[in-house]
């Protein structure tokens, strides 16, 4: 299924495929004509993606086929061993965690996982974590600290799950505790926002030394739909809310909320998942090499200062 603004791109792609087929069948040399169309396609993709509205960008961040946490885990890390459960309440499939190898080092990986089809989406609760998921995260942070494993988190959630059982089991408290525990890590921590970074539910695993974001990912205090429901009193005004919230990678880099934007392949990560995964791997590797040079105290200090300075205000007369 393609996004609305992708229609002209898809049409042109189809046309090129048809032309190739025709040329082959008829034994004609249409090399030049096809070449021209391909150039036009590239230009069209570039222009469309450069000029996406923020709301369109939200759709790309949520697009079907966009690589998910598991896709990155499978391709980037070797020898991944999933570790389950919070040892108290249960196992939350919306968060995948485990130990693996990366660049000749053992690491701890945590990834929020949306489903790649309806069945998986139901199993993963659409990537919305319950308190047991945050408790599991806290457990993994402690394990990483003990064995000096750098922590890599992949963020992709619309937010923490809002439900009766979640409230009963202290959703707010475990998010707060997860933020706190991650901020205390004495090992390097890197976060990549691979899709959607939704509110406190995302921040709970994003208190890293370096926070990276894919070009078409978003990161926001609230989903555009919920924001519209509250401030415009109409969830249908989500497009306006998305504009107002300044939730794109470019916006967030300007506000120092993220440290680095990872480029996506032309047309978005969902069009070429392997290329997106390769870019993410390269970025994590580069950042980890730099962070490995810091000692424990420096890591804590750098992380503290990184978040301490965030906020905009004025001195009062």
């Amino acid at each position: 299924m393609s996004l609305q603004f992708e229609k002209p791109i898809d049409d042109l792609e189809d046309k090129i495929v048809d032309m190739r087929k025709y040329a082959e069948e008829q034994g004609m040399d249409l090399y030049e004509e096809i070449g021209l169309l391909e150039k036009r396609l590239k230009r069209l993709k570039k222009e469309s993606f450069e000029n996406l509205t923020r709301w369109q960008r939200v759709h790309v961040a949520r697009a079907a086929g966009r690589p998910t946490g598991l896709d990155y885990i499978d391709k980037i890390f070797t020898n991944f061993n999933e570790l389950h459960g919070d040892r108290a309440l249960g196992e939350d499939p919306a968060l995948i965690s485990g130990i693996a190898e990366f660049n000749d080092q053992s690491v701890m990986v945590l990834a929020q996982q949306k489903g790649r089809d309806t069945k998986e989406n139901i199993h993963r609760n659409f990537g919305m974590m319950h308190p047991s998921g945050y408790r599991k995260a806290i457990r993994m942070f402690a394990l990483a600290d003990k064995f000096k494993l750098p922590v890599i988190t992949l963020v992709d959630t619309i937010g923490a799950y809002p439900g009766i059982a979640a409230e009963e089991r202290g959703q707010a408290l475990v998010i707060a505790e997860s933020i706190q525990r991650m901020s205390e890590l004495t090992v390097p921590a890197i976060t990549v926002v691979i899709g959607e970074g939704g509110s406190g539910g995302a921040l709970a695993i994003a208190v890293a030394n370096k926070v990276l974001i894919l070009e078409n990912s978003i990161y926001s205090v609230i989903s555009p739909e919920s924001c519209a429901a509250i401030l415009w009193r109409d969830a249908a005004e989500a497009e306006k809310a998305a504009e107002a919230l300044k939730l794109t990678a470019k916006d967030l880099l300007e506000l120092d909320i993220v440290d680095r934007i990872i480029e996506e392949p032309l047309g978005g990560a969902h069009k070429d998942p392997q290329a997106a995964i390769d870019s993410v791997a390269k970025a994590i590797k580069e950042e980890l090499i730099e962070l490995n040079k810091l000692d424990q105290a420096e890591l804590l200090q750098q992380r503290y200062e990184r978040f301490r300075k965030l906020g905009k205000f004025q001195e009062m007369a």
Binding site: I179, S183, L203, V221, I230, A244, K246, Y304, F307, R308
Partner: peptide, 17 residues
């Protein structure tokens, strides 16, 4: 505070730390 976008979200980390 929604009107300060993700900057408000970051106050959760800042106050906690």
């Amino acid at each position: 505070r929604m009107q300060e976008g993700a900057l408000s979200l970051m106050q959760m980390a800042k106050t906690t730390m």
